[in-house]
Amino acid sequence: MKNFTFNINENSYSVRIVSEEDNTINLEVNGTSYAVKMKEELKTVKTPTLVRRPSKAAPEPVKIKNPSSSSGSIKITAPIPGIILSLNVKVGDTVNSGDLLLVLEAMKMENNITSDKSGVVSAINVSVGQQVLQSEVMIELE
């Protein structure tokens, strides 16, 4: 069954457990057989089972559109796949070039997504906790 090597007082002992039955262990030490009667009942150890909670599904994104939005809008897309950690603007906000729009977590790093141009937020196509793919439109500006 199992083989062990022990060094006691500079003496080497090769121990092989042959069998376990009725609280008795049959083993060989350096080729000599022994039957060892245990004082206490042998308990078998169960391998723990990993239990995982089901993951929470990301909430469906709330698509908020400003009725005055035009087709000539500026689209802010995801540079890499990730999860939206925070939204720093809302529909109707005026943003300048370089303003922080949202924070995107990708590969355990927080990425600040900023505006390339000035404009007014006309649509927010993502929500906090949502997973986005690369090139997915997250925010639209007029």
Rank of each mutant, 00 (worst) to 15 (best):
M107V: 12
P79C: 11
V120Q: 14
S69Y: 05
V51F: 04
N96G: 07
K63I: 15
A35G: 15
P81H: 07
A57G: 07
E60G: 14
K63L: 13
I74A: 06
K46R: 08
V95G: 03
S122T: 14
V36A: 01
G82P: 14
K75E: 12
Y34L: 07
A123F: 12
V62P: 12
K43N: 01
P48D: 03
P67F: 09
A106W: 13
K108Q: 13
S115G: 07
I83V: 15
A35R: 15
A35H: 11
V132Y: 08
G129P: 02
S73P: 04
E60D: 15
R53G: 09
V103G: 04
I124N: 11
S118M: 01
V36P: 00
V45T: 09
K46E: 10
P67D: 07
K46M: 13
V95D: 05
E105H: 11
A57E: 12
D93L: 13
I113V: 11
P59Y: 00
N111V: 10
L50Q: 10
A58C: 14
V95S: 01
D93M: 13
V103K: 08
S97I: 00
G92E: 01
V45K: 10
G72S: 11
P48N: 02
L50T: 03
Y34H: 06
N111E: 03
V62G: 01
A78S: 12
V36S: 00
I76L: 01
V103T: 08
E41D: 02
K43L: 04
S97H: 03
S68T: 06
P67C: 02
E40N: 01
N66D: 15
K46Y: 11
P54Y: 14
M38C: 08
S55E: 13
K117H: 04
